[in-house]
Design a protein around this nucleic acid. Structure first.
Lengths: 192, 192
DNA sequence: CGATTCTTTGAAAACAGTCAATCTGTGTGG
DNA sequence: CCACACAGATTGACTGTTTTCAAAGAATCG
């Protein structure tokens, strides 16, 4: 399970054996089954988490009990709730497994030590954070500018790697539309 | 003009005189008049920018020529296009002044040198980035979960410091609704 | 004061949401 | 292995909201 992460690191940065070992020492391994929670609303999130296998989603639940998918992640993605992590406050989000998954957890304090003591690692993490920020800016921009159909097309384009691993209802939720509307969009798009 | 920024720094971190001087040496000053561009679509954004005075917005223009406001900033906020900054690609966004404004610019390469050579400064900037990310996640969440009226109420709550400095049409654009709809929402809200 | 921009209002059309029923595919237990 | 149950997806009819277009009414700036 760790080899996926090791491979990920190798592709991005160069570490001495000692550094690689240091990082590995901090890793915690967790397998979660489909529908199992990694984080439940009200709990505090204390980790930096890397997905080694599987597919995971984060979402909120509104006052009417409706789920709203904030994001998805698969192999080689990071996932978590930075707000809870930084503030120490209970999370407003849920994170659970779309399919059986394997996750590598780093407790945040240890993770920060790693970032500080291995600059190249810290720099990599910082890059990821910046890209996440850019991605969420772009999502806001797309949500404002595009019609439901355009958003759907952009979604299957961008997430082509794993659209077929997601139930349509979750995609609808991610796009901010109902499953019925998505179904109708797919019907008209299919005709083209 | 710089004193606003100096004050901002003093509130957040402690610097030696030498460090404060170093930072100041990198600052570029720019005054922009209402409606004047700080960044225009197609140009590359190369700065980290601090708003010393005024009110600024960033927005995109879709294929129908409709503007979509991505964000606002006032005194003591940072503004820019991180995507263009990091990728070196032409920006898809416009940034212009909602009212006459004063901006302090740091060319990004110099800014990174400052972050590296003055760790406490780099750390502060990193914190800001993290909070920006959290804020944009929350905006996505709000956009998915809330009705137009709820989003408007949340907006005037959150941006109470400067809602009255913004034309309603820009607020509507930020919320992803038409000015007409916002006008009607305000009418019903006003009755309560 | 006149011109421009912003905001409001009205009516009709387009769009997405709701509710309920049906269809499909998957997985479980007999 | 089959039958049944269940969750997910589709479809139809209806409702409600938002947009669009057009026009009139404020507000602001030179």
């Amino acid at each position: 399970m760790y080899d996926v992460f090791q491979q990920y690191l190798n592709n991005k940065i160069t570490l001495t054996d000692e550094e690689a070992f240091q990082i590995r020492q901090c890793a915690l391994f967790k397998k979660i089954r489909k529908r199992q929670y990694l984080l439940q609303e009200g709990d505090v999130w204390r980790y930096d988490a890397f997905i080694a296998r599987g597919c995971i989603r984060s979402y909120s639940i509104d006052e009417n009990g409706v789920e709203h998918v904030i994001g998805f992640g698969i192999e080689n993605w990071w996932i978590g709730d930075r707000e809870s992590l930084l503030s120490g406050q209970p999370s407003r989000f849920n994170i659970d497994a779309v399919e059986d998954s394997e996750v590598i957890l780093f407790t945040h304090t240890k993770f920060e030590e790693l970032c500080a003591s291995i600059p190249v690692f810290g720099h990599m993490i910082n890059q990821i954070l910046q890209r996440s920020f850019i991605a969420s800016q772009n999502r806001i921009q797309a949500a404002l500018s595009n019609t439901a159909e355009e958003k759907y097309l952009a979604f299957i384009e961008k997430y082509s790697a794993f659209v077929n691993r997601l139930p349509l209802s979750m995609i609808a939720s991610y796009l901010g539309i109902t499953p019925e509307t998505l179904s109708r969009i797919r019907k008209t798009v299919g005709r083209k």
